[in-house]
């Protein structure tokens, strides 16, 4: 299925969860936060949250800022 991750189109296996996506995208990062279609997906629900075709997902990590 096609979803958008951090602004770019991505082909994911059907039934992929947020946890799957995070594992794929965020190696080397902890304290990651995820939004799906603008809403926060709490860490505790990542494994149970299946993505749907067309979802727009943001996978975010800490960085320096003022």
């Amino acid at each position: 299925m096609n979803v958008t991750v951090n602004g770019s189109p991505v082909d994911l296996a059907d039934g992929a969860t947020v946890a799957d996506l995070v594992a794929q995208r965020s190696s080397g990062h902890d304290r990651v936060a995820v939004a799906c279609n603008g809403d926060v997906v709490p860490r505790s629900t990542w494994a149970a949250t299946r993505l749907s075709p067309g979802d727009a997902v943001e996978v975010l990590a800490p960085t320096a800022g003022g």
């Binding site: 990062h29 902890d30 975010l60 800490p62 960085t63 320096a64 800022g65």
Partner: peptide, 17 residues
């Protein structure tokens, strides 16, 4: 200290934390 969130591709791993 203040910190921010950005897309994972744009930031350099865990070292800051």
């Amino acid at each position: 200290v203040t910190v921010a969130l950005r897309r994972v591709e744009a930031v350099a791993g865990n070292s800051m934390m």
